[in-house]
Simulated assay, not measured.
Amino acid sequence: MTAWGLSTEGGTRARDLAVLSDQQRVVLRCLARGLADHEIARVLALSQRQVASVVADILRALGLRDRMAAVVFAHETGMIRLPVPNGLAG
């Protein structure tokens, strides 16, 4: 189990990353950092429609139900590392 406590498949999550294209990984990282579609579009020089399409492709490729699940996935696979809040490190 990870710090998020949501993994059920152990190490298979990291292997799932292999099914994503480079563009999908970049979009997933942006999504996991909390960027909205219009912000991702601006950063990556894409249209909002393209971003929405890539997000849908990510969800389908990973078998995830929604954007929140994609964010959790990104964190659990180590794509994104958040700092530990003060008082919890130990």
Score class of each variant (00 low, 15 high):
26 V>G: 00
49 R>M: 10
46 L>M: 15
16 D>V: 02
44 L>T: 01
64 L>F: 09
72 V>D: 01
65 R>F: 01
36 A>C: 10
83 P>F: 04
58 I>D: 00
72 V>I: 15
68 M>S: 06
61 A>F: 01
31 L>G: 02
83 P>K: 12
50 Q>P: 00
5 G>R: 10
33 R>A: 11
89 A>V: 13
63 G>C: 09
86 N>I: 06
65 R>V: 05
51 V>H: 05
26 V>Q: 12
40 I>Q: 00
37 D>I: 05
31 L>N: 02
1 M>R: 13
34 G>Q: 09
7 S>G: 11
31 L>D: 02
18 A>R: 13
56 A>F: 03
40 I>K: 00
71 V>N: 01
90 G>K: 08
53 S>H: 06
69 A>L: 04
86 N>Q: 06
61 A>N: 11
44 L>G: 00
11 G>R: 13
32 A>R: 04
58 I>Q: 00
12 T>V: 13
49 R>K: 13
80 I>Y: 02
22 D>K: 11
41 A>N: 07
71 V>E: 04
35 L>M: 14
7 S>R: 15
56 A>L: 06
90 G>T: 08
14 A>N: 05
31 L>Q: 02
62 L>V: 08
15 R>C: 03
76 E>G: 08
79 M>G: 08
65 R>W: 01
55 V>M: 06
38 H>Q: 09
66 D>N: 15
60 R>W: 09
22 D>L: 13
31 L>T: 10
3 A>I: 11
18 A>V: 08
27 V>C: 09
80 I>K: 01
13 R>E: 14
75 H>S: 04
40 I>G: 00
37 D>L: 06
